[in-house]
Simulated assay, not measured.
Amino acid sequence: MLTQRQLLILETIIQDYANVGQPIGSKKLQEQLPVHVSTATIRNEMAVLERAGFIMKEHSSSGRVPSLSGYRYYIDNLVKPTKADQGAVQAIRHALASNFSKVDEIIAMSARLLSEMTDYTAISLTPGSTGVKLEGFRLVPLGSSQVMLIMVTNDGTVESQIYNVPAGMHGDQLEAVVRLINQEVVGLPIEEVSSKLQAIAPKLMGYLRGSLSMLDVFDNVLGKAVHQQVFVDGKKNLLNQLTSDNIEQVKSIYSLVDHGPGLGQLLANTNDIAVMIGDELPDNLLTDYSLISAKYQDGNAGEGLIAILGPTNMQYSKVLGLVDALRLELSQRLSNYYRDFND
C-alpha cells in the first residue's frame, strides 16, 4: 500500500514526464510538489516506488520515468479526467453541426476532430447495423452491357455496385428480379436480408437463367452496408514518436492502423471507456503506446467506438476528458440525425 506522499510523487512524475518527456529527478520534483519535502526524502520515496516497479531509471540518468505498471496503477487509482473546457465543447458541436448526408461522414469527422484536438492518431468505428432496415434496391442502366445496383437503407446509407450483364440477359429480366426482391425484403432489418435472398433464390434463378453472378452482386452490396466501417485520422502523428531506433516499428504501426488485419482486435473494447497500456495491447508492436477507447450510442439501437492511439506518456487526464466530451456530443448528433431523417 502506497502512502499519500508516494502517490503524490508517482502522480507528479507521470504528469511531468507527459509534459517534458525527460526523466524526473528529486530536485525537479521538489519544485513541483504542492507540499514541502526535502530532496533526500523524495529520493527515499522514489526508491520505494522503484522497488515496487512503478518507476524506473532510464539509461544512466539519475531521474526516473514511469513504468508500464506505474501507468496502470495511475489509470486505475489516480487519474482524474480533466473536463473539456467550454471552448472545446463548442468547437466539437460546431464541427458536428455541419449538414452531413451520411452517418459515415459524421463518424469520419469525429476521428478528425479527436486527432486535431489531441495531436494523436484517432480511430472511429461506425455503429453496427442493428435497427437499420432496407428501403429498397434499384437498377440504373449504364449502357447496353452494364447496370448499377443501388441499395438504400432507412439510416440514409446508399451502397452501389456495377454489374456486367451476361450475354443473352435483358434489362427486363433484371428489372423483374429487382421487383421480386423488393417485394420480399423491403422493410426487413439489414442483417436478415441475405438469408431472405437465399430463401427465394430458386425463384430468382428462373429469371436469371441459372446465373449466380447477380445474386453475388446483391450479397456484395449488402456486405458493404452491414460491415462496420473504420475511419483513421492523424496517422502522420505516429511519426512524432519516430527515432533512429524505432523506424521499422513505427512503419509497422502505421500499416496496422491503416486498416491492417489486427485493427479489429485492437479495438475490441467491452467497457464504456477503456485504457490499454503497452503490453496490454494485443499487438506486440505497441509496447510504447496506449489506446484510449470509448463507446458511443447512435440513438438508433446501434453502438460505435472512438479511440485514441498515442505514446504511453500521453496526457491521460486531458485526453480522457476530450474523448468523453466527444462521445457524448457524437451520440447526441447521431440521435438528432436519425430523428430528422425519420421525420
Rank of each mutant, 00 (worst) to 15 (best):
L2K: 03
T3F: 12
Q4L: 11
R5P: 01
R5Q: 07
L7V: 01
L7M: 12
L10H: 01
E11L: 03
Q15M: 10
Q22I: 09
Q22K: 14
I24A: 09
E31F: 12
Q32K: 15
H36T: 06
T39V: 15
I42W: 00
R43F: 06
N44S: 13
I55W: 13
M56R: 07
E58T: 05
E58F: 14
S60C: 09
S60Y: 14
G63V: 03
V65L: 10
P66C: 03
S67R: 06
G70S: 02
R72D: 02
Y73I: 00
Y74V: 04
I75V: 15
D76H: 08
N77E: 04
P81W: 03
Q86F: 12
G87F: 07
A91P: 01
I92K: 03
I92A: 03
R93Q: 09
V103A: 03
I107E: 04
S110H: 01
R112F: 10
R112Q: 15
L113D: 02
S115T: 07
E116R: 14
T118F: 06
Y120V: 00
T121Y: 13
K133G: 00
P141S: 12
L142V: 10
S144F: 09
S145K: 13
V147D: 03
V147S: 07
I150E: 13
I150C: 06
V152R: 15
G156N: 01
G156Q: 01
P166M: 06
A167W: 05
Q173D: 05
L174H: 02
A176Y: 05
V177Y: 02
V177I: 04
R179T: 06
N182G: 00
E184G: 01
V185L: 08
V186A: 10
V186G: 00
P189A: 02
I190K: 10
I190Y: 11
S195F: 09
K196I: 01
Q198F: 10
A201W: 09
A201P: 08
L204Q: 05
L204E: 03
Y207P: 05
Y207G: 04
L208C: 08
L208W: 08
R209I: 01
G210L: 03
S211R: 14
L212S: 11
M214I: 06
L215I: 10
D216V: 07
V217L: 13
V221M: 11
V221Q: 07
L222C: 08
H227D: 12
V230H: 11
F231Y: 15
F231N: 07
V232N: 10
G234M: 06
L239R: 14
N240K: 15
N240Y: 14
Q241P: 03
I247A: 14
Q249K: 10
V250I: 15
L256I: 05
H259K: 15
P261D: 02
G262I: 00
Q265V: 11
V275A: 01
M276F: 13
I277R: 10
D279W: 01
E280Q: 15
D283C: 09
L285T: 00
D288P: 08
Q297S: 08
G304Y: 08
L305Q: 07
G310A: 07
T312E: 09
N313G: 06
N313M: 08
S317W: 00
V319T: 04
L322I: 06
L326N: 00
R327A: 00
E329V: 01
S331F: 04
S331E: 05
Q332Y: 09
Q332L: 12
N336A: 07
R339G: 01
F341M: 09
F341H: 11
N342Q: 13
D343F: 14
